Simulated scan of single mutants.
Amino acid sequence: MQLEQKTITGKEEKSLLSAPTKALSEFYEALNTRDMQKMASNWAQTDEAVMDNPVGGIKRGWEEIRAVYERVFPSPQPYWFEFYDYSYHEAGEIFYVVGRERGEYRTGDRVLKIAIRTTRVFRRIEGEWRQVHHHGSIDDAELLAAYQEAVRSNG
């Protein structure tokens, strides 16, 4: 296990990163720039991909996971997320990170300060690191309800 204090935002210089950290950074780049093509290339395009997050519940397979991002991305206002305070674990063809996400998601004139406990699992598929699992939990019930409502209002 390796503890990391470097925040991952998606804006990192990719050529300076290890291949696993690059895959993690590319996820946050896709999320923060609302780039569905980059998001699709970050996730495994298989039925074994699974996401369990605050706005989508449990989704299995890329098509169900894509539908969650299709609800998040259309927000008419700016948002951002970053990953920090995490541990990095690698075991052969799999690596995973366990840490925290923070960010801002805006709805109307309200700014939601997002705080999510997050785990992401990547597997090497055909020589590339692809995300195969994400789990996120929001502890604050009021924040969870407000974030879910904000994303629902996108479509």
Results as ranks from 00 to 15, higher is better:
residue 107 T to W: 12
residue 50 V to C: 08
residue 60 R to E: 10
residue 119 T to N: 11
residue 128 E to P: 06
residue 72 V to G: 06
residue 113 K to F: 12
residue 101 E to Y: 06
residue 68 V to Y: 07
residue 89 H to M: 14
residue 112 L to A: 10
residue 53 N to K: 07
residue 130 R to I: 06
residue 113 K to G: 08
residue 116 I to H: 01
residue 69 Y to T: 05
residue 104 E to N: 15
residue 141 A to I: 05
residue 72 V to T: 10
residue 125 I to Q: 11
residue 129 W to V: 02
residue 112 L to C: 03
residue 128 E to A: 13
residue 99 G to N: 03
residue 49 A to C: 09
residue 115 A to L: 14
residue 117 R to T: 12
residue 100 R to V: 04
residue 101 E to G: 03
residue 56 G to W: 01
residue 69 Y to I: 04
residue 99 G to V: 02
residue 141 A to P: 13
residue 126 E to L: 08
residue 63 E to T: 10
residue 130 R to M: 08
residue 100 R to D: 07
residue 135 H to W: 04
residue 119 T to P: 09
residue 81 F to I: 02
residue 80 W to Q: 13
residue 83 F to A: 01
residue 109 D to A: 12
residue 71 R to Y: 05
residue 52 D to R: 10
residue 90 E to D: 08
residue 93 E to T: 14
residue 119 T to G: 07
residue 76 P to L: 04
residue 58 I to A: 08
residue 136 G to W: 00
residue 103 G to N: 00
residue 78 P to K: 09
residue 141 A to V: 07
residue 49 A to G: 06
residue 124 R to E: 11
residue 88 Y to V: 11
residue 85 D to C: 12
residue 106 R to L: 13
residue 91 A to N: 12
residue 110 R to H: 15
residue 69 Y to K: 09
residue 127 G to E: 05
residue 68 V to I: 07
residue 86 Y to W: 05
residue 53 N to E: 15
residue 58 I to L: 12
residue 68 V to E: 06
residue 96 Y to V: 06
residue 90 E to Y: 02
residue 136 G to F: 00
residue 98 V to N: 10
residue 70 E to Q: 13
residue 119 T to S: 15
residue 121 V to R: 03
residue 66 R to N: 02
residue 114 I to A: 10
residue 107 T to K: 14
residue 77 Q to N: 13
residue 53 N to L: 14
residue 60 R to S: 07
residue 132 V to I: 15
residue 134 H to N: 12
residue 107 T to E: 11
residue 62 W to M: 00
residue 85 D to A: 13
residue 112 L to Y: 08
residue 129 W to F: 05
residue 120 R to N: 13
residue 76 P to C: 04
residue 94 I to N: 06
residue 138 I to D: 00
residue 81 F to T: 01
residue 64 E to V: 06
residue 49 A to T: 03
residue 123 R to A: 11
residue 132 V to E: 08
residue 56 G to N: 00
residue 87 S to M: 14
residue 64 E to S: 09
residue 123 R to L: 05
residue 92 G to D: 14
residue 77 Q to C: 09
residue 79 Y to F: 15
residue 127 G to L: 11
residue 86 Y to H: 03
residue 102 R to H: 12
residue 51 M to H: 05
residue 124 R to G: 05
residue 113 K to I: 08
residue 67 A to Y: 09
residue 50 V to E: 10
residue 50 V to H: 04
residue 104 E to I: 14
residue 137 S to I: 08
residue 90 E to W: 02
residue 91 A to Q: 15
residue 100 R to Y: 10
residue 52 D to M: 10
residue 89 H to K: 15
residue 137 S to T: 08
residue 50 V to K: 07
residue 51 M to V: 12
residue 106 R to W: 02
residue 58 I to V: 14
residue 142 E to P: 03
residue 57 G to S: 07
residue 104 E to H: 11
residue 77 Q to L: 14
residue 90 E to T: 11
residue 69 Y to G: 04
residue 101 E to K: 04
residue 113 K to P: 05
residue 116 I to R: 08
residue 106 R to V: 04
residue 108 G to E: 06
residue 108 G to L: 05
residue 133 H to E: 11
residue 49 A to R: 01
residue 48 E to P: 07
residue 108 G to Y: 14
residue 55 V to I: 13
residue 94 I to W: 08
residue 76 P to D: 08
residue 59 K to A: 06
residue 85 D to N: 15
residue 78 P to G: 02
residue 83 F to K: 00
residue 60 R to K: 15
residue 76 P to F: 07
residue 67 A to C: 05
residue 87 S to G: 15
residue 96 Y to T: 11
residue 110 R to E: 14
